[in-house]
Design a protein around this nucleic acid. Structure first.
Lengths: 250, 250
DNA sequence: GCAAAAAACTGGTCTGACCAGTTGCTCTGG
DNA sequence: CCAGAGCAACTGGTCAGACCAGTTTTTTGC
């Protein structure tokens, strides 16, 4: 009675989820083909596909036509965005909504970082900055993001760190969107680079107000530039952060 | 070229997601049957089912055998504080950490509210203000909190709303702490009342910059006052927000 | 030996059938 | 008239086998 022979789509996705959580299926690892799974669990291929789509919706796996399905490269950070926020992602206005918030929070973070950063913080921020500038300007979204995160952590304000990490994915999207749209243009890229330099300099110099101004001006500049671009072109480029973990090297 | 006739499972789920986001499909509302969707979008039922399973995985819909699929009832509780934040609660420094963040976020919220508040928003904010001033100054922490929340919602920035609601409990604690410590003192109470008035007035008058200054000054004043009190007395009074939901009426 | 062609994978879609819960309507028996 | 049994007509759940479309591997032919 306890072992049910009938196998439903829900069962299949549960089973696979458990395999992934157990570590039996490792991130990046290839999942057996749909036909194999169907045979192994004695269900039709349609059921397997429905189960896989559910896992896909939950971000546990990724599927590539002709290649197969793979366990998503999860758990870089245990804390994923709330389902609610996932809804926002992809809706263009969200970009500006988030940039509005970032302007304030990152301004404050820079202020506090300039005030409180330890020697180790300063080292980490500087390193993140150098990593970012050394990398290919077109694919350094993650390093750009890391630079900003390093500053936030140097603020030594746990609430601030927590809040920004709770919209990490969303933030990464905005950074990727700005990198994809602005960095290819020489004048934008140079200007952004100088802004980053200014943020770094003021923090290292321990000038809170200057650091806040620099950080706020930077985010505002990105926001304004995106607005301008959007008004000029047909639209802006969006990047799915879950898409290509290899985009920025590692 | 721009309009693609071929319709894929991804398209279907995207379309449905948009309908849900737009509000064309309301929470609890029944989604057309699989066969109807298949006919409408000219795809097989299998594809529709795969799309629905993906939305299911993302928590957007719920499906009941024999009944149909329904838009998930989102936002019952925006989501309680994360376990991480609960750790922070009780650590005095967290109060100031949060107040630092509040200064920025509520400043921005007030700015946007002054800029974007609808008639309904203005009404709700005004009502919240009146509720707050009418109540006993010593036990109106929740109304105080509600006043600030009304402003945040009038900002019409979903990211801002989400972020502040994710630290709702913690925020309530800071408000309660300030009310418990500051309101009993006549001069503090009057001053805070005037600050609230100023915030309300500038928002209703549609003066974004003034509203931001007012909101930031208010939070900063609370923070400074608490600091002062803490330095003078033995310490500040803390209130457990989970303790007595009836303290401030409902 | 090597490059192109072919076969053998992978996922993506379609069709039409049947099973299994739910709902509502009708028709019967009181 | 009404209660209730039972039958339709919905709904989602599963299955089988076929074909299309990409990707990888093997075979073939020079």
């Amino acid at each position: 009675m306890s072992e049910r022979q009938i196998t439903t789509a829900q069962d299949i996705s549960d089973r696979l989820e458990r395999l992934i959580m157990d570590g039996s299926l490792l991130p990046e690892e290839k999942i057996p083909s749909e036909r194999q799974l169907a045979a192994r669990y004695s269900v039709s291929r349609a059921i397997v596909r429905e189960a896989l789509h559910e896992l896909q919706g939950r971000g546990l796996i990724e599927t590539r036509h002709g290649r197969g399905s793979f366990v998503a490269p999860m758990l870089p950070e245990p804390h994923t965005d709330s389902p609610l926020l996932k809804l926002f992602a992809g809706h263009p206005r969200t970009l500006y909504d988030l940039l509005e918030v970032r302007e304030q929070l990152e301004g404050q973070a820079a202020y506090l970082a300039a005030e409180r950063a330890s020697q180790r913080d300063r080292y980490l921020i500087t390193k993140a900055f150098e990593d970012m500038t050394a990398a290919d300007p077109l694919t350094n979204a993650r390093r750009d993001h890391a630079f900003h995160l390093a500053i936030v952590e140097a603020s030594h304000n746990p609430v601030l760190v927590h809040l920004l990490s709770s919209v990490k994915q969303l933030m990464l999207m905005t950074v990727q969107a700005s990198v994809a749209n602005l960095n290819p243009r020489e004048n934008f890229r140079q200007r952004i680079h100088r802004q980053h330099q200014r943020i770094l300099r003021t923090i290292l110099a321990g000038q809170p107000r200057a650091a806040r101004n620099a950080a706020m001006a930077h985010v505002r500049y990105v926001s304004d530039s995106m607005h301008t671009l959007e008004a000029m072109d047909q639209g802006i480029i969006w990047v799915d952060p879950n898409q290509r973990p290899d985009t920025n090297g590692d």
